[in-house]
Amino acid sequence: MDSLDGRKFKAVADTVGGEVEASTEFTYHEKDGEIWAEYAGGKISRGYLVGTRTGDTLDFRYTQLNTAGETNTGHCVSRIETLADGRLRLTEKWEWESRSGSGTSVVEEVG
């Protein structure tokens, strides 16, 4: 099980119904089953996520500030996959908690 600590990810495409775009970059941290990350880019000025990891599943809450000055929060469950080239991919099922909407997004490790 590969650690996410220090790994950087970007969305593979703009997220329909969400604010994550292909230009949004995430930096993940991991310690003792705890997961947290900072992210920004595109429509997002600043975002944070915090949660837990069990095997290849992440379960976290996120909060973010968009470029329009609005804050939003939500819940996400992600599945970790290893790509053929060794990079990691996170397939995410997310749902807003501060407004209506839900969807799926994919982020892949960069570098």
Rank of each mutant, 00 (worst) to 15 (best):
V77Q: 13
I80M: 10
G33T: 11
K43S: 11
F9E: 10
A68K: 15
A84Y: 06
T24K: 04
V77C: 01
V107C: 02
H29Y: 13
S45H: 04
K43E: 09
L83G: 00
V12T: 15
T24I: 04
G55I: 11
E81N: 12
R79T: 14
V12M: 05
G18L: 10
V20F: 10
E92G: 00
R53C: 07
T52E: 12
E108D: 10
G69M: 11
D59G: 06
L58V: 08
C76H: 08
I80V: 12
E70N: 14
K93H: 13
E30G: 14
F26E: 04
G41Q: 05
L49I: 07
E95P: 02
A13P: 10
Y39C: 00
V77T: 11
L65M: 14
N72Y: 12
R79N: 08
A11R: 12
T15L: 08
G41V: 02
S23R: 06
A40W: 00
S45V: 07
E34C: 08
F9D: 04
R89T: 03
H75M: 10
D32Q: 09
I80H: 01
E34Q: 14
T71H: 02
W96R: 09
F26P: 04
L90H: 01
E21Q: 15
W94L: 04
R53G: 05
G103Q: 10
G6I: 12
R89F: 01
T67E: 09
L49W: 00
E25V: 11
T91Y: 00
E38M: 07
L49F: 02
T71M: 07
V110Y: 01
D14V: 08
S45A: 13
L90N: 04
E109I: 05
F26S: 01
S100D: 15
K31E: 13
G74S: 14
T104C: 00
C76K: 04
V12H: 03
E97L: 15
K43Y: 07
T71A: 07
K10M: 13
G18M: 05
L83H: 06
V20R: 01
K31I: 12
F26L: 07
V77E: 10
D5L: 10
T52D: 06
A37Y: 03
R46T: 09
T52P: 04
E95F: 05
T54R: 05
E92D: 15
G17S: 11
I35C: 09
D56W: 01
G42N: 05
G33Q: 09
A11I: 11
V50E: 00
G17H: 12
I35D: 07
D14F: 09
A68Q: 11
Y39Q: 00
W36Q: 01
K43P: 03
G74Q: 09
E30W: 12
F60W: 14
Y62N: 08
S98F: 12
S23T: 15
T67Y: 02
K93L: 01
Y48M: 00
F9H: 10
R7A: 08
T52C: 01
S45T: 11
T82N: 03
Y39S: 07
E21S: 14
R87K: 15
I35F: 05
E97Q: 13
